[in-house]
Design a protein around this nucleic acid. Structure first.
Length: 278
DNA sequence: ACCTCGACCTGCAAGC
DNA sequence: TGCTTGCAGGTCGAGG
């Protein structure tokens, strides 16, 4: 998509999880893609018009890329959106459970003046791509990227300060850390030997340095995500996890001998080992 | 302001 | 065999 134009946009239905914005196809058509990025679980595509296409895969959404007119790919009833690009390729958004969405954000009303703070942090990530300016509430609320230098034991501890919810619920809160979902929240807590039932504030900073639990948890989040990306893990493939979906099976931690339990927290299932996770 | 919970959606598995 | 029911996931808004 990068550098090419939307020649045609086909919507096979009026909505995904939410309705498409007004004039969605019309606003995309003819614009050139200037950048493609990810923030948390959101995908952002900045356009020459100043608009930003904001997309989310939900849980079952994915993209297929094919040469335009290629008949090799069988049309599927869950092909909801087609982007026909000037590059000669068609990008198909397929989402059986329709939990994904697409939306458009206009350009920021006022161009963001670089504050002292943002100048400092942008230097800290100078090797990363500059984040495209977009004003979109769900994006504005996101916490730090877990694999960035902004996400540290200190930032995690700060985000947990005063939080009376469970540690598991805190990890799913995208304001604490962006992009962690239900599976890897369980996995990270197991790796860090921390109980999902513990109150989030118990790992927070009180006065000085972050507690060792925050240090461990931040490291485990980075480790678990880095491994998942490297191994291209997905719950739809053959991936097996250390605790997720392993209720009743033995804990895989060396010498632990505990049994994985499944509990419900905030209407979502959590898997953990009651023996080694404290 | 914080927190919990249900709605959204559909494929699949379990139970009758 | 064929039906119903429940569950999974991420986000958001209603209500406590």
């Amino acid at each position: 998509m990068l550098g090419s134009r939307f020649r045609r946009v086909i919507l096979n239905r009026p909505n995904l999880r939410i309705p498409f914005p007004r004039q969605f196809a019309e606003r995309l058509r003819g614009t050139t893609v200037e950048s493609v990025a990810r923030r948390g679980k959101y995908l952002t595509v900045t356009l020459s018009s100043g608009d930003t296409l904001v997309m989310h895969l939900g849980m079952s959404g994915w993209f297929a890329v094919a040469a335009t007119g290629d008949r090799t790919r069988e049309p599927d009833p869950h092909d909801h959106v087609l982007f026909i690009m000037s590059s000669g390729r068609t990008i198909v958004f397929n989402d059986p459970r329709r939990f994904g969405f697409m939306d458009l954000a206009g350009p920021p009303s006022r161009p963001k003046a670089a504050t002292a703070r943002s100048r400092r942090s942008s230097r800290a990530v100078s090797r990363a791509e500059a984040e495209p300016a977009v004003d979109y509430p769900s994006l504005n609320a996101l916490g730090p990227e877990p694999l960035s230098r902004e996400f540290t034991a200190a930032s995690l501890a700060r985000a947990c300060r005063g939080k009376r919810t469970s540690l598991k619920a805190a990890l799913l809160d995208q304001r604490v850390v962006a992009g962690l979902g239900n599976i890897y929240a369980s996995e990270a807590l197991h790796d860090a030997k921390l109980s999902p039932l513990r109150q989030a504030l118990t790992i927070a900073t009180v006065g000085g340095a972050p507690r060792k639990q925050a240090q461990q948890l931040a490291a485990s989040i980075k480790k678990v995500l880095t491994n998942a990306i490297r191994r291209r893990e997905s719950p739809y493939g053959s991936a097996r996890f250390r605790v997720y979906e392993r209720e009743g099976e033995p804990c895989l931690r060396q010498g632990c001998g505990g049994t994985i339990r499944r509990i419900t927290q905030g209407a979502r299932s959590t898997f953990y080992c009651p023996k080694c996770q404290r």
